[in-house]
């Protein structure tokens, strides 16, 4: 429970962080909230020789509105997201998701960028940013690039981020007026992570589903959109019967992993239950 020896550097800008990453090659790691990285280091499962703390980098902080998007700095903490009036107003799904992460301590330290860069299969944000069609804005030695979220999550703990890149901002299209949303999770009783989490965005036109977006996290190696469910919902009446019918498809071909607290079979079952319930919750908000 004591990490191996490492050197600690405070970066003052993204550019400095990138050049430090370049300088140390694979031996360095960026430090954000430390709530994923430090536990791994304490168990000596991760032994970076250099830690580059992004804490002092001002340009990675803050939430602002740009056109019809909300732009969120990578170092924004879960708590800042959950309580930001702008986020609650324009992307309430993300605020609802952030508020369900871990516990108070975790939400006070953990960051959006850290969570998305780490890509823990049981993390909550991935499901939310998938349905929100977020854009990941990264910066590396070759300059800035933007990765659409659909290409971000590659595998367990693996993203499209390159080793010498910093994830700087997440650009989230604002939810449209009248759109319903929900994030529902079954927390792991010990860690608080998601045994399963479902994010829904629902647009309804005169009682008919115009568009539904559903993503799931926690079940398998990475978070996924559920296209079959989404397609089955389009054009259907926005009611419990069609939600239940479509939700059955949630487990169709779903890659689920066994966990001490929930077997793959149970997770597949829950995928349907939580999808149905998530859609119903979203529907309540459409009507609000």
């Amino acid at each position: 429970m004591i990490p191996a020896t490492f050197e600690y550097v405070r970066a003052k800008s993204v550019r400095e962080a990138v050049s430090l990453l370049q300088q140390h090659g694979g031996r360095a790691k960026l430090l954000a909230g430390g709530h994923s990285l430090l536990p791994l280091m304490k168990l000596r499962l991760s032994q970076p020789e250099v830690l580059i703390d992004l804490g002092p980098v001002e340009e990675l902080r803050g939430v602002r509105e740009e056109g019809s998007s909300v732009v969120i700095g990578a170092m924004t903490t879960h708590d800042e997201l959950a309580s930001s009036p702008l986020v609650r107003e324009r992307v309430p799904l993300l605020a609802e998701c952030a508020a369900q992460i871990g516990d108070v301590q975790v939400r006070n330290r953990g960051t959006l960028g850290g969570s998305l860069a780490h890509a823990d299969p049981a993390a909550d944000y991935p499901a939310a940013v998938l349905v929100l069609d977020a854009q990941m804005e990264c910066e590396g030695p070759a300059g800035a690039r933007t990765v659409p979220v659909s290409q971000w999550f590659v595998d367990m703990l693996t993203t499209a981020l390159r080793p010498d890149e910093v994830l700087c901002r997440v650009r989230v299209p604002a939810q449209t007026r009248g759109q319903g949303w929900s994030y529902t999770k079954l927390p792991h009783p010990a860690s608080g992570y998601s045994l399963l989490g479902v994010a829904c965005l629902l647009s309804v036109d005169g009682g008919t589903v115009r568009e539904a977006r559903v993503a799931i996290t926690g079940v398998g190696p990475k978070a996924l959109r559920l296209p079959k469910v989404e397609q089955a919902l389009a054009g259907k009446p926005a009611d419990e019967a069609s939600f239940a019918e479509a939700a059955k498809l949630a487990s169709d071909g779903l890659d689920a992993t066994d966990d001490l607290y929930a077997s793959a079979e149970y997770k597949r079952h829950l995928a349907a239950v939580y999808t149905k319930r998530g859609l119903l919750r979203a529907l309540e908000r459409v009507r609000q």
């Binding site: 536990p39 168990l43 516990d103 792991h188 009783p189 010990a190 860690s191 992570y193 001490l260 607290y261």
Partner: peptide, 13 residues
């Protein structure tokens, strides 16, 4: 021991 850490063993909240 599969429940070898506090993130595997559920202490009540």
């Amino acid at each position: 021991l599969l429940t070898g850490t506090m993130s595997d063993y559920a202490v009540p909240k």
